[in-house]
């Protein structure tokens, strides 16, 4: 029982990371019908930001880690995605892959491919005891930051005028424009928010793993993409739900699987994911039909 709760905390913490990352993908997809595969590399870019600012006061390091992906997200939107807006799905997809490789190559070119050790917020690495459980402060920070982000984003989308326009644009972009909603601005806001979410992911990931390297975003991207697909692409709550579900599946399979099979845990995780998608190809939390894209 004790071990179960320990795993539960681990899985919620991991699921939080996946959820935030999934949300950043779903947000852009909702508005542009674009799966931005460069989203993982924005995590990497933010992580390098934190590496360069690691000796600054922690609040400054945090701000830099958050701001760098936002800036990159806005620049990418402006120079890579805006010119192909409204193009076919495959064009958008190829563009996002190209941006992804470009970001990785730039880092390889100007920095190195060897992982760089970074000690972010070492204080968060210490655990504390509660009811016989060992809880790292980092898990608390991860879960807390995620809860805060989800609440704020929900409030923004539900209560602010810009949030309502974003939801309208996500449902029917053309009609939103017919009402005067500025396409460029609403898409830029979506990219900025998703950049911020990747920045948070970057900070928490680096704090956890203690290293940065050019391909560090690739696996995270894959996991987050799977999370959004489980929940239903384009559904924000679905992405969050899928993130937590994937976190739980991953941790519990890792924990309760026989040691001899431990190298297959990923395979089993994705087997479950495939089973879910066979059962519900549209995702668990999707009921909407496909709509117009930009």
């Amino acid at each position: 029982m004790h071990a179960f709760f320990q795993h539960l905390i681990d899985s919620i913490s991991l699921g939080s990371l996946y959820a935030v990352m999934g949300l950043s993908i779903a947000l852009v997809f909702g508005i542009m019908r674009l799966v931005n595969f460069a989203q993982g590399d924005l995590v990497m870019v933010g992580a390098y930001g934190s590496a360069f600012a690691t000796h600054a006061p922690w609040i400054l390091t945090l701000v830099i880690t958050l701001v760098v992906p936002v800036v990159f997200a806005l620049v990418i939107e402006r120079i890579a995605f805006r010119p192909v807006r409204g193009a076919s799905d495959s064009t958008l997809l190829v563009t996002s892959f190209a941006v992804s490789y470009l970001l990785q190559s730039l880092v390889l070119l100007f920095l190195t491919s060897t992982p760089r050790g970074v000690s972010l917020a070492p204080a968060l690495g210490h655990p504390f005891h509660v009811a016989g459980l060992l809880v790292p402060w980092l898990d608390v920070a991860t879960i807390g930051a995620t809860a805060f982000l989800l609440t704020t984003l929900t409030w923004f989308l539900a209560k602010t005028r810009t949030g309502v326009y974003m939801r309208a644009a996500a449902e029917d972009f053309t009609t939103a424009r017919l009402m005067g909603v500025r396409a460029n601005r609403i898409i830029a806001i979506a990219f900025a928010i998703s950049g911020l979410l990747t920045g948070v992911t970057a900070y928490l990931t680096v704090a956890q793993s203690g290293q940065v390297y050019p391909t560090m975003g690739v696996n995270l991207l894959l996991v987050a993409f799977v999370a959004t697909t489980i929940g239903g692409l384009g559904s924000l709550s679905g992405a969050v739900f899928g993130g937590y579900l994937l976190g739980i599946i991953t941790v519990f399979i890792g924990a309760y699987f026989p040691r001899s099979l431990s190298s297959f845990t990923q395979a089993f995780t994705y087997a479950i994911v495939i089973a879910i998608l066979v059962y519900r190809p549209q995702g668990l939390l999707t009921w909407r039909s496909p709509r117009t894209r930009v």
Binding site: E171, A176, L178, G180
Partner: peptide
């Protein structure tokens, strides 16, 4: 018509203020 089905009546009306 192209009403936003996922929005409330009030929110649909607020799109009327999107034109500046």
């Amino acid at each position: 018509r192209h009403i936003f089905q996922t929005l409330s009546v009030e929110e649909n009306l607020s799109l009327g203020y999107a034109s500046g």
